[in-house]
């Protein structure tokens, strides 16, 4: 529900991008250029070790918004996103996204719901990982 409100509001600001298998959407440590709404396909989220080795974190499925926490916190990407299969992605440029939030405060609440769900998902990952 929250994601669809965000997508509807941002539809006129998005650019549709296609990524082939193995192509990179964004890299860990880079400043975010914007947010990515995954329309189709699967995206692998990876961590890099100090030695440069890529370790899988989780998979992103259609409907997920990638890069949101980095854009909102004005930080850098905390992982690398690579297309696991050919993907279709709606890209919204960072400043456009932030302007859209200013223009439509109702969208803010949807963004907060998405962020809250992401926080809960990452806590789930921690619970599972720490049991290993």
């Amino acid at each position: 529900m929250s994601r669809s409100i965000i997508e509807t509001t941002l539809a006129n600001r998005e650019t549709l991008l296609r990524f082939g298998e193995g192509e990179t959407l964004f890299r860990e440590g880079e400043p975010p250029l914007g947010v990515y709404v995954l329309h189709s396909g699967t995206v692998n989220l990876l961590f890099a070790t100090k030695g440069g080795e890529a370790k899988p974190l989780r998979e992103a499925q259609p409907g997920q918004i990638l890069g949101l926490t980095s854009v909102v916190s004005k930080g850098v990407h905390d992982c690398t996103a690579t297309a696991a299969v050919p993907c279709e992605v709606a890209f919204i440029e960072r400043d456009d996204f932030l302007r859209a939030l200013d223009d439509s405060p109702a969208v803010w609440f949807s963004v907060l719901r998405v962020l809250s769900s992401e926080v809960n998902a990452v806590y789930d990952d921690m619970r599972t990982l720490s049991a290993r």
Partner: peptide, 23 residues
């Protein structure tokens, strides 16, 4: 909303760092 979003993002990032360490 903006401050709440920033704090949620910070919590997310902090948990991600811990996952990196645990995993």
């Amino acid at each position: 909303c903006m401050h709440t979003a920033q704090q949620l993002s910070e919590k997310y990032n902090s948990a991600q760092r811990e996952i990196r360490s645990l995993g």
